[in-house]
Simulated assay, not measured.
Amino acid sequence: MSHSSRSRLRMQTASLPPTPSDGTRRRILETALQLFATRGYHDTSIRDLAKALELQPSALYAHFPSKEHVLAELVRIGHEAHHEALALALKEAGTTDPAEQVRALVRVHTRLHALHPQLALVVNEEFYALTPEMAAPALALRTQSTLLLAEVIERGIAQQRFSPPHPRATAAAISAMGVRLPYWYELDNGLDVDTLADVHAELALRMLGVRERK
């Protein structure tokens, strides 16, 4: 992550999607999110987190057994919010047209990464600091989310609506548009989130070589 990206994220308030966690536990997660996003997981200690929260390290351990458990919870929250939003977007699209389904998926994917840049960055960069056992719940959600887009693309190809040069590579490129947002996008840079989501949706359809219905 570039120094400029870290500086920009440091100036923003870290936010989490709605979760069952509240009180001290949520405050721990939000503070850890800010520190992990701006310093990095490995460069943030339990003492750093306790100091930022004005708590004793022992108070943190009452909520999370270790720093890795804090990261695992953030990663799970991020993946769960992402998957639920994608599934809801497909349901609310109310259409069987693969092009419109892709548009719905890409728009919500873009919005989540643009509105929660710290969480998006920690989920995608620090995920690999977790042991396989700790990463397993989030990895299962990531696989399900990947399949949602892959299945829509497959249907689009079968219906001759899409003609991508390589389905899997194109799906990865579409996903990467959202994943890269924390590195460059700023809410006050003259490009609002809804317009950005529409731009990404249009780019995704172009990458898929969408064809008009016959």
Rank of each mutant, 00 (worst) to 15 (best):
Q56R: 09
T38E: 07
E133G: 11
N189T: 13
A85F: 09
L16H: 07
S58I: 05
T195R: 09
L115M: 06
L86V: 06
A81E: 02
R10W: 07
H113F: 12
T131E: 12
A140K: 07
R107W: 03
M134I: 11
H166N: 14
H82L: 05
Q56P: 02
D48M: 08
L115A: 11
Y128Q: 04
I28C: 14
R76Y: 14
F162E: 01
P132E: 06
H83F: 12
P65H: 12
Q101M: 06
R142I: 10
L139K: 05
Q159V: 01
L148V: 03
Y61M: 10
E154M: 07
S2P: 05
W184C: 07
S7A: 15
A138I: 00
D194C: 09
V152M: 11
S66T: 15
S15V: 15
R25A: 14
T13H: 14
L196I: 07
A158G: 10
T44I: 04
F36G: 05
K67Q: 01
T38Y: 08
A81L: 03
A89P: 05
S45D: 02
P137K: 06
H166V: 07
P132R: 00
V152C: 02
L16V: 12
A32R: 02
E100K: 15
R25N: 09
K67Y: 01
V108N: 00
L130W: 03
V193H: 03
S21I: 09
S5G: 00
S21H: 15
P20C: 07
S7P: 02
F64I: 01
G190K: 05
E68V: 05
L149K: 00
P65F: 04
Q118E: 12
H79N: 13
Q159N: 09
A52T: 05
E126W: 02
H200W: 02
Y183F: 12
Y41K: 01
P98T: 02
A158V: 08
T24C: 14
L148G: 10
A172W: 06
Q118F: 10
H166I: 12
R25I: 05
P20S: 13
